[in-house]
Amino acid sequence: MDVFYAYTYSTAGWLSLQSFALLTVPGMMTTMLEQEARQPSSTEIYFSRCLGMSLLTIAILTVILTGSIPLTSSIAEPVTTDDSDPKAPYAVPTMMVTTMFHALSASYAYAWWAYKGQAAFAIGMVVSGFIASVGLWCALFASSNGKISRRTGADKRTAGFPFANKEAAKKHGGKRL
């Protein structure tokens, strides 16, 4: 499986898991995150369920906008994440937005974990941080094909500054690559 699609499905899965908990048992969330046990207010239940529906919507949009679900009736063509692919024109921007979301969620969970020291915040911090790092990896390495030289097999986007590749230059008659 491509790393990009692993990121897409892990984002959708994590957001769906959070939304499921917020939609089904909003009182449990209040009990887990508060020091004293009490019944949640109707406002807390309302906001919990609204957040759950929002997270589920973001999860569905992530899967749809990245092209993981083909929206055409033809399944003969493979789904790619190329920038010129008309099936997933929003794949890279969606990945960037969800990566920022996971990074912000991880830092926010870290702040609450540092303040309260509860395991629920630590779990959220670790999972969101891991997914954010996979998204960052996809943004850096998996979002473009690169420009590979047919003659040397090297990536043409690299530069020799500040360290020149003298060994490769020796192999090609002193020519700079």
Rank of each mutant, 00 (worst) to 15 (best):
A76K: 11
R150M: 14
Q18H: 04
L136Q: 14
T72R: 06
A91Y: 07
P26G: 08
P86T: 05
Y90T: 07
Q18K: 04
G117Q: 03
Q39Y: 00
T57K: 02
S16D: 01
L136R: 00
M100C: 07
R151T: 10
V127Q: 04
A164N: 10
A37M: 04
T57N: 03
P70G: 04
K87Y: 11
D2N: 12
S19A: 15
I148T: 13
T94V: 02
T99C: 14
L177C: 06
R157N: 12
A21Q: 00
Y108C: 07
I60D: 01
P70W: 04
A59H: 09
A142H: 09
D82W: 07
G174R: 00
M53N: 06
D82N: 13
Q35W: 02
P162L: 07
E77T: 15
P89S: 05
T81M: 13
S19D: 02
V3I: 09
F4I: 11
P78M: 09
G174A: 09
G52V: 07
S128F: 02
F4L: 10
E167A: 12
G129Y: 01
E44T: 01
A103G: 15
Y5A: 06
M1I: 01
T152R: 07
Y5N: 13
L177G: 09
K170V: 09
P93K: 12
T11A: 13
A109T: 07
G27K: 01
A164R: 14
A109N: 15
L17K: 04
I64S: 00
I64H: 03
S54R: 03
F130I: 13
M1A: 01
L51S: 12
T81K: 00
Y115E: 13
I60H: 00
E167G: 06
S48A: 13
I58Q: 05
G135K: 09
